[in-house]
Design a protein around this nucleic acid. Structure first.
Lengths: 183, 183
DNA sequence: CGATCCATGTAAGTTGTTACATGATTCG
DNA sequence: CGAATCATGTAACAACTTACATGGATCG
C-alpha cells in the first residue's frame, strides 16, 4: 500500500526521500502514516523494480541528496492500482475499542480518565481538520485552475476525517456520560 | 495487541483456538481482526510466556483439541494493558482514502463505480451493526444480572461502529454527488 | 557554538498475510 | 457418501516498528 502512496506523491513532482516524508506527515498522515525508515526502504524497492528513478542532485560528490522521480512503469502501476475495484471492506484495528470492550476489568475512574484523554486528543485532531488541513488544501488549490480534480478529492478526504472525528468526539461524550451513570 | 484481545476473550472462559477464532470473527471483528494462523501462533507465544495454560481435552490420545485458559500472570498482564494511559492517537491507515486522494489520475466513471461499491459495502455493514451485532449483545446481556458492566461496554463499542458506518455512508453519498457534478 | 532541520539509511525484531497441509466429526 | 464445519497448525513471505548511526547546513 505504502508504495502506491509514494508513487502518488512522486507523480506530482520529483522529490528527495526527506521531502516525500514531509508530504506523508503533513499532507497524508490522515489516511496513511509511515516511518522514515520504511519510506527509504520502499523507495529503494521501487527503484530496483524500475517504477521510480533516482539521481544524485549535488554538484559535488559528497552531496548525498537523491531526487526520486516516477517512471512510466510507475505511472502505469499507480493507475492500475487506482482502477482495481475494492470489493471488500478493509478489516478494522482499533486499539481504543479493543480496550474498551474488555474494560469491565478495571475500575471506573481509570476508565473515565482514559476516555477523557481520548476525548481531548480527538477534539484537537478535529480542530486540525477544520483549520490547518483545510487551509493547506485551500492554499494548494489557489495556485491551480478552477475546477481542478485534485483539489476536489483532497477536500473529500479531509471532509471524511473531519466527520469521523466529529462522530468520535460525540460518541466519547455519550459514552462518558453513560459510564458515569451506569458503570 | 492481538495478544491482549486473546487474553480478554480467555478471561471470560477457557476455549480452544478454534473457539477463540469464532469470537474474534463474530464478536470482535469490528475492532480487531486476525487470521487463524496468527491466532494459533500467538496462543503458543502466550503459553510459552506462562500467560495462558493449555490442556488436551480429549479422553483418548488422538483428540487434538486443546483448551486454553488464562493464568494469573495473564490476568495481570491484561489488567496492566487496560490501565495503561493512551496518550496518543493511533496512526491511520485507510486504503479507500488513500486511493481517493490520488484518483485524479483515473476517469470519472471508474471512480464513481468504486465509490458506489463502497457505498453498498458500508451500508450492509451498517445494517449488521443495527441488527445482528445488536441482537448478539442483547442476547449475551439477557443471561446476566441487570446493570452489568460488560454489556454496557460491548454496547458502547457497537455504537461507535454504527455511528462510524453511518457517517461513512453519508459522506460517500455527499462525495458521489459532488463528483458527479464537478469532476 | 549549540540547537534544529535537512538528509540518508541499517539492523534487529515484531506483526501480519498467504498458501498450504491434515484429519475428525456432523448433517443432510 | 459428500459437503460443511470443527480443529490444528507450518512455512514462507511481506509489512511495519524501534533503535541506532551519521553527518552537513542553517540560524539565532
Amino acid at each position: 500500500m505504502l508504495r502506491y502512496v509514494l508513487l502518488g506523491w512522486l507523480n506530482y513532482r520529483p522529490m528527495t526521500g526527506y521531502q516525500v516524508k514531509q508530504m506523508v506527515d503533513n499532507a497524508s498522515s490522515h489516511f496513511w502514516h509511515a516511518q522514515t525508515s520504511q519510506i527509504y526502504r520502499t523507495l529503494n524497492e521501487l527503484t530496483q523494480e524500475g517504477l521510480v528513478g533516482r539521481e544524485t542532485a549535488g554538484e559535488d560528490e559528497r552531496d548525498e541528496r537523491r531526487v526520486y522521480h516516477i517512471m512510466p512503469a510507475g505511472q502505469r502501476a499507480l493507475r492500475e492500482w487506482l482502477s482495481l475495484p475494492m470489493t471488500e471492506l478493509q478489516p478494522t484495528k482499533d486499539a481504543l475499542l479493543a480496550r474498551l470492550f474488555f474494560s469491565a476489568q478495571i475500575d471506573r475512574d481509570t476508565l473515565l480518565m482514559q476516555l477523557r484523554v481520548q476525548r481531548a486528543l480527538h477534539a484537537r485532531q478535529l480542530e486540525q481538520f477544520r483549520t490547518e488541513i483545510a487551509q493547506m488544501i485551500e492554499l494548494a488549490r489557489a495556485g491551480r485552475p478552477d475546477g481542478d480534480r485534485d483539489g476536489l478529492l483532497w477536500e473529500a478526504t479531509r471532509r471524511l476525517g473531519e466527520l469521523a472525528e466529529e462522530t468520535t468526539v460525540r460518541w466519547l461524550d455519550e459514552t462518558i456520560v453513560r459510564i458515569e451513570a451506569e458503570f
